[in-house]
Design a protein around this nucleic acid. Sequence first.
DNA 1: GCAGATTTGTTCGTATGTATG
DNA 2: GCATACATACGAACAAATCTG
Lengths: 224, 224
Amino acid sequence: MTGRKQSGVALYRQVAQDLIGRVDRSELAPGERLEPEGRLAERYGVNRLTVRRALEERAGIVRTEHGVGSFVAEPAVRHRIDDGEASLSESMARRGISVRHHVLAVAQVEPASVEFRFVRYLEDEPWSIGEVQVPAALAPAGWDGSNSVFAAMSAEHAITIKRAETAFGAALAGPEEAGWLEVPVGSALLEVRGFNTDQEGRVVASFAHRIRGDRAEYVVRLPQ
Amino acid sequence: MTGRKQSGVALYRQVAQDLIGRVDRSELAPGERLEPEGRLAERYGVNRLTVRRALEERAGIVRTEHGVGSFVAEPAVRHRIDDGEASLSESMARRGISVRHHVLAVAQVEPASVEFRFVRYLEDEPWSIGEVQVPAALAPAGWDGSNSVFAAMSAEHAITIKRAETAFGAALAGPEEAGWLEVPVGSALLEVRGFNTDQEGRVVASFAHRIRGDRAEYVVRLPQ
DNA sequence: GCAGATTTGTTCGTATGTATG
DNA sequence: GCATACATACGAACAAATCTG
């Protein structure tokens, strides 16, 4: 970083650009730890705050942990939602990717619905924070998070769950989400919301997931 | 804002929370201008930097313009992609929403492809920045952005364009995107990528859009 | 379990550059 | 040109989380 100012490009972007370059050129491998902010600041000859801005800028490529350090993030997981599986868990399990859930809350809501809130982990990495609402009559009794809510539902009751409508949006991670997903506040999240039906078209679940944008990609192939 | 520190919640988040609250309670209407950062800082009794962090935090709800001011953003537009239309432009036009494009670049790429880069405006508000690649043989000759690239293609050649595969992801706005979309750097973007085929299943286009997360929502209804 | 070192997180004050009207 | 308002950058300090001995 010789140019310092003058170039017309903000310093923090120059730093961000250099970091990206080092990742692209594989000088920094996924999972690898970066030098502390202070040291990076010295190395680039800028203020520590400037380094921090650069790291924020690259929130998708670099992940930081309070009191620990910054690390190069891993690439994304692609997930198809047109393969007939209603839940991500089964698709991933079939691909040999371990899925587990940490149950945050199980609450009775409305007349007769139960809401599950949970964090989903893929390969022991936090991947999404989700909410699923199902009719109380169909709620899986002792869901322990080892499989999906839907799988538990299907097992306890004789129903097949299908995707009906799915909506995609983008959002920024708030404090709580950031905490569970171990990403900085303000990271990009893919928001996936929708509802599911059983084999006879009855709505049996609605869901909302906020998924780490640096990990997630949903693929839809529409029928011709 | 009485609590100042102590509460365990970062000051900038308290400010951000208060701003969100004022928007939710409709004390601030969409499009309305906020007080200058300096004045907000005084009012909340914090440093101007702290106000700036709060505004960044709420990039989806508040939009700032260099040298002008900060404004409350407008709510989102829902878009269905399973209605047979290959392009958003036609769907929106049918809903009475004006769509136009600002062409950033038209470039010859690869052996025989043409790439269009453009900013899409809905109701004269920047909505997405996109790239479309089509075979040179099918490229619309004098696309002026008044309709979609696909519409122009269909008109010039006798083909029907269908969606084939679409992938969704989330990303943060980089400097260039932020500039065109008139959002702060680091805002949430919905990334939609994929390709299209003609009526006979031949790939005739690939596309990548980065859409303002505060404006966009894509809805997919999968066939039963 | 605790104390200290390390590292990131937050906040302030201040200065200067740049875009807009 | 000038005033206003946002953009970038620096230095300093302390808080909070984590790790180590």
